[in-house]
């Protein structure tokens, strides 16, 4: 999809880098550990392509958090982890002397707050840099199979041909555990016009 020019694509990567950098700083404070994040890999794909990518790249069972947003861009953002790893994250965040039962009980709430912080840092940085505003909804945590993800993200809501998926993939690593996490941003094509014009005015000031 040639919705964005090469410069615009580059700018989005750069802004996501900034956002993810902020998120990494936040995550490292939360888990009291050094966090290494890979450079985000950015893809713009259609709904069927996104479904294929989820199927190919994601582990069969996922723990995640979803947050809707609206403003100069509208859509849903999700933070996804292999389910087997999410308890390690919870442990790293609130760990200490908790029993396995207590950790399981707190898993969803911890993920929701983690997602809230990471997704908001990305979205808010994007909005701040582009001098735009965005409203984020209450985060919702879930545990699902990879097949259920399209439904959970409302990927087929409305006409799939009108939905552009901006998929951002990031690898996380902590000192004590290797975690692979994914960030996915589903952006409605209807709202991409304002996104494109925000990117253009940013570039116009820059170039």
């Amino acid at each position: 999809m040639d919705l964005f020019s090469a410069d615009e694509h580059d700018l989005i990567v750069e802004l996501m880098n900034l956002g993810v950098g902020r998120a990494a700083h936040a995550l490292s404070q939360l888990v009291s550990d050094e966090v290494l994040l890979s450079v985000p890999r950015l893809e713009f794909i259609s709904v069927p392509e996104a479904q294929k990518a989820f199927h190919k790249d994601l582990p069969p069972f996922l723990a995640g958090v979803m947050q809707s947003f609206e403003g100069f861009i509208n859509g849903r953002a999700a933070l996804l982890f292999p389910e087997a790893r999410s308890l390690e994250l919870v442990n790293a965040m609130i760990g200490e002397e908790l029993t396995a039962d207590e950790i399981t009980e707190l898993e969803h709430e911890t993920l929701a707050e983690l997602g809230n912080i990471l997704l908001n840092h990305c979205l808010a940085t994007l909005a701040n840099q582009l001098h735009e505003q965005i409203r984020t909804d209450i985060p919702r945590a879930f545990s699902i199979s990879a097949e259920e993800l399209s439904g959970t993200l409302n990927l087929n809501q409305g006409n799939p041909e009108n939905t552009l998926v901006m998929l951002v993939q990031i690898d996380f690593s902590l000192r004590n555990s290797a975690l692979r996490g994914y960030l996915a941003f589903i952006i409605d094509l209807h709202s991409a016009d304002t996104f494109v014009s925000a990117l253009r005015s940013y570039l116009a000031e820059l170039l």
Partner: peptide, 8 residues
């Protein structure tokens, strides 16, 4: 106290 660090 918020993760929503928007300038606005």
């Amino acid at each position: 106290v918020t993760a929503n660090i928007q300038d606005a």
